[in-house]
Design a protein around this nucleic acid. Sequence first.
DNA 1: CTGTTAGCGCGTTCAT
DNA 2: ATGAACGCGCTAACAG
Lengths: 336, 336
Amino acid sequence: MQNRPGRPPRITISDVSTAAGVSAATVSRVLNGTAKVDSSLVDRVHDAVRQLGYRPNAAAQGLARGEWGTIGVLVPDLANPYFPDILKAVSTVARAHGRRMMVMESDENPAAEHDLVEDLMRCCDGVLLCSPRMDRAELVELAGRKHPMVLFNRVVPGLSVPSISVDFHGGMTQVCGHVAQLGHRRAAYLSGPSASWANAERIRAFEGARAFGLEVTVVECGATSQAGYDAASAALDAGVTAILSYNDLVAFGALSRLQELGISVPADLSVVGFDDLSLDRVAHTELTTVSVSRDNLGRRGGEILEELLVTGHDADPVYLPMTLHLRKTTAPPPTI
Amino acid sequence: MQNRPGRPPRITISDVSTAAGVSAATVSRVLNGTAKVDSSLVDRVHDAVRQLGYRPNAAAQGLARGEWGTIGVLVPDLANPYFPDILKAVSTVARAHGRRMMVMESDENPAAEHDLVEDLMRCCDGVLLCSPRMDRAELVELAGRKHPMVLFNRVVPGLSVPSISVDFHGGMTQVCGHVAQLGHRRAAYLSGPSASWANAERIRAFEGARAFGLEVTVVECGATSQAGYDAASAALDAGVTAILSYNDLVAFGALSRLQELGISVPADLSVVGFDDLSLDRVAHTELTTVSVSRDNLGRRGGEILEELLVTGHDADPVYLPMTLHLRKTTAPPPTI
DNA sequence: CTGTTAGCGCGTTCAT
DNA sequence: ATGAACGCGCTAACAG
């Protein structure tokens, strides 16, 4: 942008126009294909562009066009293994539509989210809010700004904002059904981040699980394998025959602890994961879990946002069903 | 930006100025603290801002200031577990300096990198190139644009661009030393992405390893646990007593295969990882590996870029030493 | 088909 | 201390 000492002078569109002996408008037209231009001029422009190494200034373009060519993504934690696949998919979709991707993280601090989203709105055409932890009121307030926005893995009843979410409730219900069918009556749930809607949805499934004759005790845990490791014995204390987990990481952590305790899985105890983080090769343990393709999830999220940006039309809320993967960490409870 | 149908009218600085009964210049001064303003006017401005819900347009600010307030990061693969920690650290540093973070990925396609970097330069104050796969010539060409740029995990001899890299060569040398000292004479290396400088540096260490009396055979593999699993038997065919890996994922994948083959580690065979991806809790296997804090690495990378942006001064190249973690997958070779 | 003109929204002189 | 005027770099509407 403006010339700063020690940096090469910015080459602008007018530099190109004078070098090519045409008007700036013509340069713009050639570069954007906005209108037909005499081929001789086209060549001269291209030559000038090449020789000067001209690149249009994105801020100026944005200002003039009223579009930044950028989407913003907010995630609670960049280090959470759930999001890389999502970001990758969103990035791919964005790029396919000529858009860049700005990324921000709240570091699991709900209070930080509002300002971050506000900032994203100042510099992005649309915003994708992944698993936002902020409360409903804040979300409603942000939605009220009418800035293109898509909710990802967070459903807010009564808020008409395009959204895409995994059916966590249904997924956990499948898990409960599976475990109950095996004959388990009491299970523990290693709970994830307290502000997480996704976690709340999983927990909500336990009400319905009573109908299967399964009683689930919620144990505070977290989202990492270390948390799962640490919380495993507390879960055991609840006197259960099965452990359900917030995610696969937690489950593997718990498995690690159980092994140390000499408890054999699934003979003595059943363990179920969540999300299918594809760590089986690493853990060489085939974990029973439930999942949905994160690639597909991220891609569709990006597409919904893109559609919103282009047509201005809110796509219908998407609710993706999870698939149960029966593997080798669940079995009937030990017969006493 | 410009009003588009179906969206609320953009509130600009002049809306605020008329509402507050002051000039736009005053609003700007109040918001940026650029100059002293009468406190009564300050209040009126703040009130107007709040009531109108005014947010400065980032593109306009960028254009006027000659700064975007944004840094760009390019990574080869967003799904590679090495980068989340890096991105998180870089994002934190950027935010601490009031900058946003734009992220792009080349999807391990070296040919795509050049255009992506060019695009980043059009909209970012500075660029961080993580493990770029492009060839030296392209890198030199990009550096020639004098756009603030930092190289991360890629050293280009003769190119004076600020850089921060892990001493992969030294790390692998430590690995070789450790293995040789245990008495191993022949090892296999499960090789990573061919275009990766980081991989090349690891391989380069094998020349020096001959001095320890260790002969290392390079086996094509990849960067995932699946690749490690698949390549494990090929490594075995080389008739070795130890397997060295491109990263921990590969090592765990290989371990998984070895277990299937009934080969016990470290009694029959030693296995060494790389990077310490902290998967031990998941794999409940204490992998001998070598590493450097990715958090620190990312943070310093961000700081080097920040310093470059602020002072314009190239920081000296940083070369971070790796630390060897002796755990439980290495032991002397079996006595015949 | 092409050049001229007028903004896009903001920061920053320069006068006052 | 404050306002008016100009420019950042580019696109779009308007003439010709």
